[in-house]
Amino acid sequence: MRESLWLESPEPESNHDGSTERTDVADRIRGAGDGLRALVGEARRTWLARAEAGRPGAVGAPGGPGWRPFEDAFPTFYQFTNKPR
């Protein structure tokens, strides 16, 4: 099962020289089936529930007012957010 999942979406063998035919990842995402939309929908509901739960604490405390759910959890979050458009 896992093997078949993997074979459906191989990463490019190489793109060091730009010669590899590129898969359009964005198109593949937008063309994904209901499974992805369901998963993203669940994630959205989780984020909304966390925001509404508003765990007690000072401003900026986990779940509290001013809490940035991604950026505040980790001092080293830059590994994901620090990239240019």
Binding site: M1, R2, E8, S9, E11, A32, G35, L36
Partner: peptide
Amino acid sequence: IRLLEGVLAHAREPV
């Protein structure tokens, strides 16, 4: 790359 592909692979699994 494999993170993105892993999440996509999970999304394709039957619920």
